[in-house]
């Protein structure tokens, strides 16, 4: 049953990933990315990361993608969007990566099964949100504060970058 779910999610994720790159209209690309986000969230649920699945839907599908669509609509893109001529460089970068990856996988063979859960880990797995919260606010407390700083800087930077031209236009 788990294989069935994984096959479905993986198939849709791979297909929509290709569609994001291949579709010419940015709106269709963004919508394909939306489908991808939903299926990645489903994959997280099968991996017992329910909190991350919810956050994925809220932040990625809810906030980030809406921002993308907003900008696409705002700029009103109509020019033809052909592919870049440096596809040879793309092939040059990606084919060795793919080969390297296949060689690594073929060399590894079957990975050992994960160790059975201890009682404590089972208790932690039953409440994913609490486990994440405990880890986040004990071991990773300082990175958490730094992340808030990143968000603050990004907010100020976005406001300044998007606003500057209006201010200059007002002065002239």
């Amino acid at each position: 049953m788990a294989e069935l779910f994984f096959g479905y999610f993986a198939g849709v994720i791979a297909l929509t990933a290709v569609l994001v790159v291949a579709l010419r209209n940015p709106v269709y690309s963004a919508l394909a990315l939306l489908v991808l986000f939903f299926h990645v969230a489903g994959l997280y649920v099968t991996l017992h990361a329910e909190f991350l699945a919810a956050v994925q839907l809220i932040v990625y599908a809810g906030a980030i993608l809406v921002l993308y669509l907003f900008v696409v609509m705002l700029l009103n893109l109509k020019q033809d969007d052909r592919y870049h001529h440096q596809w040879r460089i793309a092939a040059f970068v990606c084919v060795p990566l793919l080969l390297e990856f296949l060689v690594l996988l073929a060399g590894n063979g079957v990975a050992p099964q994960s160790s059975p859960l201890t009682a404590e880990q089972t208790a932690a797995a039953s409440d994913n949100t609490m486990a994440i919260g405990t880890t986040l606010f004990t071991t990773y407390l300082f990175p958490f504060e730094v992340a808030s700083l990143i968000l603050l800087v990004a907010m100020i930077g976005a406001i300044i970058l998007a606003k500057r031209d209006i201010g200059e236009g007002g002065q002239t």
Binding site: Q86, A90, C94
Partner: peptide, 10 residues
């Protein structure tokens, strides 16, 4: 797919 997209899209 993402790497290819970064390299070939305009």
């Amino acid at each position: 797919t993402g790497v290819v997209g970064v390299l070939i899209r305009r």
